[in-house]
Amino acid sequence: MSTTERSVDSAVELKPITQRPPLRQYIRELRARSEYIRAVPLSDMRVQHLDTLLGNVWFLLNPLMQAGVYLIIFGPLLAVDRGVDNYPVYLVTGIMVFRFFSQTVNGGTRNMKKNESLMRSLYFPRAIIPFAASLSNFYQFLPGMAVVLAIALATGESPSWRWLLLPPILVVAFIFVTGCGFITSRLGHIFPDLDSALPHIIRMGFYGSGVLYAPESFTSNRSALLVFDLNPVFQLVSLVRWALLDRPSPDWFWLAAPGYATVFFVGGFLYFWRAELRYGSQQ
């Protein structure tokens, strides 16, 4: 082995490739592939409905049908709409935002498994996988928001300056959800069982995020309401409803929601990066 040792000493340009790249270099490698990051979600979406008759119409039809189902069940049937002026918009807003969140977080547990063969044949910063998955879900969330706007106009809401604040709110939502996606991507890689367990936990979050009803119309218990207020998804949904329906939303949500987004995004990214090398390996 003496030859090996010597050649290592004489060659300064040899770099370890089986060690985790330092954070700065990692981010540099990610930025160098910005075009790839943008191309992946679009190609994923291109093939998603390829085998169907209606094809890409499903990107619009899917949120429409989902909205329809919830409107029929929770509107006239169960009358959960107390305390809400424009219940259709209220409900569909919540469903769309929550759907974006749950799809990214639930899908995260399968992200690394799904891309195993890709990772075993090509090197790229692995963070691209959860990021692109989140971006893909975000793109699919946008037609859902278009449906919401259409319903809003159809039910007599008139456009206001508050609508202009929708894009920044949605960007904050994207950052928060992507951070969560980083976390479940690594967790799902460590515990594949999470794939079965997480949807139930997320479903609990569905009822705790005020998607279907206005919590304040059902309880006046302060601590119960605080639980809702501290929930980042509830905050995001409230902000979107504020922009669309002028529903009151606490001012501090404007600080709390971006705060949550920053913490989850940075924390989630770092958490994901720390296991960078392990993702391609068989578990």
Binding site: I17, T18, M119, R120, S121, L122, Y123, L277, R278, G280, S281
Partner: peptide, 9 residues
Amino acid sequence: TALSGLIEL
């Protein structure tokens, strides 16, 4: 695959 730095050693 290991030499390519694609899996953890």
